[in-house]
């Protein structure tokens, strides 16, 4: 579904040099897979996601989506940002319906779908509220509905829950998995695509290894920046559906955590050394 081929990204620095954030990233993500990208802060994880989204162009290397090389915005993906990306001047219903309205659906039709999605994320009572009137967790739910309603094949998530408190965060993770594991709407089949994966392909960026293991099928570890590259890729052989409340204390989980932490630890230390030098 997604393939990165030796993707490198450099930025011009104010003093005239170049700063390389990503170097030679090659990565394959299968259709319907949930892949988590972990790495120390400042290692270019968000840059990588922006490249897959088509918001940034790689300095060199290629991105393939499905059978096509990515040029311009990735029209098969939606993107859940770390920051709040809801339009503050639209109420919850209009925010959720936005993607459908942009695609030219009638207002009434879009609102009907939005209401269904609001019911699914438990926010029916808040349809006419503005984002500023909601809690952080509720805003994330609205963002999930906003992303899910247009039902693209790929979902990019950039530390979507990092601003939430631990308990809200765990609830959001559970809801994310529930949405992902549930069959996708019949609507997506009516679009008439030849092949439709049952599940969305998710690329999930986080700096929290626990979150990565709990959610993903595969955990990819990025090295400390600059010139970040992939240092490890590890499958997560935990059964689904997963009970996130129990999972974290299971032996298999702890084993995985130990293995991956051994790799990530080095990079975290390196990145801290790098930062204290700067």
């Amino acid at each position: 579904m997604l393939e990165l081929d030796r993707v490198t990204r450099a930025f011009a620095t104010p003093d005239g040099g170049t700063y390389c954030t990503l170097r030679d990233i090659s990565l394959k993500v299968g259709s319907g897979a949930f892949v988590a990208l972990v790495g120390p802060s400042g290692c270019g994880k968000s840059t990588l996601l922006n490249i897959v989204a088509g918001l940034l162009r790689p300095t060199s290397g290629r991105v393939r989506v499905g059978d096509e090389e990515l040029a311009g915005l990735n029209r098969r993906a939606t993107y859940m940002f770390q920051q709040d990306a809801l339009l503050p001047w639209k109420d919850v219903r209009d925010n959720v319906a936005l993607g459908l309205v942009l695609a030219g659906r009638t207002r009434a039709d879009a609102n009907r779908s939005a209401d269904e999605w609001l019911a699914r994320v438990g926010l029916t009572a808040f349809a006419s509220h503005y984002p500023s009137q909601l809690s952080g967790g509720m805003r994330k739910r609205v963002a999930m509905a906003q992303n899910w309603i247009i039902d693209r094949d790929i979902l990019l998530m950039d530390e979507p829950f990092s601003a939430l408190d631990v308990h809200t965060r765990q609830r959001m993770e559970t809801e994310l998995l529930a949405l992902w594991e549930a069959p996708r709407s019949a609507e997506s089949f009516m679009v008439g695509r030849a092949f439709q994966a049952i599940r969305k392909t998710i690329l999930f960026v986080t700096h929290d290894l626990e979150e990565a293991i709990a959610l993903a099928d595969d955990v990819v570890v990025l090295s400390a920046g600059p010139a970040s590259h992939i240092v490890a890729r590890h499958p997560v052989a935990l059964e689904r559906p997963r009970d996130l409340l129990e999972l974290r204390t299971s032996a298999a989980f702890i084993d995985l955590y130990r293995t991956l932490w051994a790799v990530l630890r080095e990079e975290v230390i390196k990145s801290q050394r790098e930062r204290s030098r700067a």
Partner: peptide, 28 residues
């Protein structure tokens, strides 16, 4: 920037971007 990126990812054309993000933002 994030609002602009989000709306573009959700499928907004240049005109829709102006209508749904830039004008409301300027109106405030």
């Amino acid at each position: 920037r994030v609002l602009i990126d989000n709306v573009r990812m959700l499928g907004a054309s240049e005109r829709q971007l102006v209508r749904h993000v830039l004008i409301p933002s300027a109106l405030t």
